[in-house]
Amino acid sequence: MRLKSSPVVMTLYLLFLLVPIYWLVNMSLKTNTEITSSFTLIPNDLTFRNYLVILTDPSWYMGYVNSIIYVVMNTVISITVALPAAYAFSRYSFMGDKHLFFWLLTNRMAPPAVFALPFFQLYSSVGLFDTHIAVALAHCLFNVPLAVWILEGFMRGVPKEIDETAYIDGYSFPRFFVKIFMPLIASGIGVAAFFCFMFSWVELLLSRTLTSVNAKPIAATMTRTVSASGMDWGVLAAAGVLTIVPGALVIYFVRNYIAKGFALGRV
């Protein structure tokens, strides 16, 4: 029994959230002439040309492929290194652990703008400029701390007795970790992976700075329509809609953990 909630407030708020998105979807289904010459709430002349342009032109759809490649790389790296570290933070106390944990937090809070130029020079000098791995590593700056924090939050909830019982039963640490511990925090790993995926997916400043052609992300490709002759509003809107799709698809699975993820595992 919580106190009564008002559906009116929720409806108004959801309308506020959805109307701008609706407008984008609406525009992506119109022709450019209809967008610029008339003002219609639903497309008069329904067209899928804008989506066809994106799905058939390699310079467009490769943007999505590039984004997905570096995002997946980043997620795998982040989770792999964060798992043992989060275990260490949740189970042991060691020299400097509090300072280290705080230092990780500051990296999540660091403005990407500060790092854009040094990253550019660092990766250029080691020959990684315009590769997927460069962006993946750069995004580790904020995703590794995030993953450590989220996983630590989940691991704290697993009683320590389980570890001890496993050791008495003769499990070695790696075998215990993979066979027993990881299945126990499977939902935590899923949530951490989702948040790494998401924060890497939505980031633009670093991914744009570190790429030019071969690894250019979709977010950077989208600025292209601005410089073309006139403005291809329809294609821009369609590209925008397609960037929302991956997040919208997986969000259902993590809906009960969204708050925990955003709160860095601290709920």
Partner: peptide
């Protein structure tokens, strides 16, 4: 629905 805006790339 509420989480939707949070998952949209910043430039979008």
């Amino acid at each position: 629905l509420m989480a939707l805006p949070l998952l949209i790339p910043f430039n979008v």
